[in-house]
C-alpha cells in the first residue's frame, strides 16, 4: 500500500474557513482546528500554516508556537485509522499503560512513556496510535477509541484482536 499523497488544502478552502470565524476571540484556534479536521490526513501542512499566518496577519513564529503548544494539532500526516488510548486517571488505575504498551509492540512502535501525548504512526500510514489525556468516559475505564468510536472495559487481548481485525479488513478490501 502506498502512502497517500500529501495534499495541502486549497487556498479557497482555507479562505472559506477563515471567513467562517470573523471574530477575533478564539479565531486562531478555531481556524486551525477546523482546517486540521478538513485535511484528509488530519494534519496541518506547512503551506497551510504559512497561508493562514499571511491571511490573518499573524507572525509565523506565533503560528508555529500555537500548533506545537496544543496537543490537538498534528504537523505530520496521521494514519488511515487512529486508535487513541485514554491515559486518564481512572483508565490508568485500570491498566491503560499495559494497553498502550501492548498496542505499541503490536504495531511496531515504541511506547514513549516520556509523554502523556505521545503518538506513533506506522510507516505505511495505516495506523496511528496515540494517547489522550482523558476522554471523560471514566466509568468505562479502560477506554480506547478506534476511529472515534469509544470502546470501554478494554483488555490487552481484545484490543490486539481489534487492531488485527482492522488490518485484516484492509488487506481484504485492497485485494477485492
Amino acid at each position: 500500500m502506498s502512502v497517500r499523497e500529501e495534499a495541502p488544502l486549497s487556498a479557497e478552502q482555507v479562505d472559506e474557513v477563515i471567513e467562517r470565524f470573523p471574530g477575533r476571540t478564539g479565531d486562531v484556534l478555531r481556524i486551525l482546528e477546523t482546517l486540521q479536521e478538513m485535511h484528509p490526513l488530519k494534519y496541518l501542512p506547512e503551506a497551510t500554516l504559512k497561508y493562514v499566518a499571511e491571511r490573518k496577519g499573524l507572525a509565523l513564529s506565533n503560528v508555529f508556537s500555537v500548533v506545537t503548544f496544543y496537543s490537538f494539532f498534528n504537523l505530520n500526516p496521521q494514519g488511515r485509522h487512529t486508535i487513541m488510548v485514554c491515559r486518564g486517571t481512572a483508565c490508568h488505575t485500570r491498566g491503560s499503560k499495559l494497553l498502550l504498551d501492548g498496542l505499541m509492540s503490536e504495531s511496531g512502535g515504541s511506547a514513549n512513556g516520556d509523554d502523556a501525548s505521545s503518538s506513533f504512526t506506522t510507516p505505511d500510514h495505516e495506523l496511528t496510535v496515540r494517547t489522550v489525556a482523558c476522554f471523560g468516559q471514566c466509568a468505562l475505564a479502560p477506554v480506547v477509541s478506534v476511529d472515534e468510536d469509544i470502546h470501554g472495559h478494554m483488555s490487552d487481548l481484545k484490543l490486539k484482536r481489534m487492531v488485527r481485525g482492522i488490518v485484516k479488513r484492509e488487506a481484504k478490501d485492497d485485494n477485492s
Partner: peptide, 26 residues
C-alpha cells in the same frame, strides 16, 4: 460564543485561557 480548547491542561488557569483565546500559546 463557543471556543474549543485544543488540548492543553494549563488553559484551565485563567490567564492561560485568556492567552489561548487571544490566539497565542496558553
Amino acid at each position: 460564543e463557543l471556543v474549543e480548547g485544543a488540548g492543553a491542561f494549563v488553559c484551565g488557569e485563567e490567564t492561560s485561557m485568556i492567552a489561548s483565546l487571544e490566539g497565542r500559546a496558553g
